[in-house]
Write a protein that binds this DNA or RNA. Sequence first.
DNA 1: AAAACTTTGCAACTCAGTTGCATAGCTTTT
DNA 2: AAAAGCTATGCAACTGAGTTGCAAAGTTTT
Lengths: 135, 135
Amino acid sequence: MKETDNKLTMRNIKPTAMRELVLKVLSEQKSAISLLELEQKFEKADKTTLYRTLKTFEENKLIHSIDDGTGSVKYALCKETCECNPSDLHVHFLCTKCKHTFCLNDIAIPNLTLPANFKLETINMVVKGICANCK
Amino acid sequence: MKETDNKLTMRNIKPTAMRELVLKVLSEQKSAISLLELEQKFEKADKTTLYRTLKTFEENKLIHSIDDGTGSVKYALCKETCECNPSDLHVHFLCTKCKHTFCLNDIAIPNLTLPANFKLETINMVVKGICANCK
DNA sequence: AAAACTTTGCAACTCAGTTGCATAGCTTTT
DNA sequence: AAAAGCTATGCAACTGAGTTGCAAAGTTTT
């Protein structure tokens, strides 16, 4: 059994040819990728299939989605132990020069004291600026 | 000179009837409002005009926009002294029950230590959860 | 091998945001 | 005060990301 298959099976995703390919492409990325960008990595691929593949991956916490404010949602692999709980969350960085969106996996979302009677569920924190490569 | 006119003029926005009305509506909101919601506050108003009015207001820092991840951008008045610099930024809260988006004006975005050679420009931080009214 | 379920692919739609263009309304110049 | 010029407004039509319906292809179960 291939390693990729294993990663899918671990997350209760039936390993099809398409899904293996998508996971492979996602694994190769250094930054988060949009549906459109993913589509362009393939010679011939249907947007709907990729869309639904990403949804399936996200539901099963193999990947997480990032709304970086650019108008297109980006996707990136979760860590193996990730359950997408608040404690698993990290900061994302959008470079305004190269337009890449990075997971700053080592930077946890800082603790916040909300006003009285506000209950926290999750936090989206996107930092914009210039990344190390573009500097 | 009316107070509303004054606020517009202070920000170098020519005070037209439409703009005064829009500013009035925005001032009355307890939470941030989308273009569509704004449109519905008027009997008869053109989306384009409202859209361009909001853009003008935003460019001149009378209001700021909030991408709360719901798919529709929200707008809220800036404080009088706001220049929309990082130090002016605050946390936004999206209630998953009532779907309202609030400016937590008193909660500044926490300081972050970015990886080496990353330069910060701005931060978008949206907390999701249940607000005090819905609890 | 047939029946039942899942995945894939095409087309077509939704919805927020945006642009083009003509008209209406000011402002400035003569 | 009329003409010329600029700004704001309103309608229609478009864009692009995301999404759904449905039928065909592929798997799994009986």
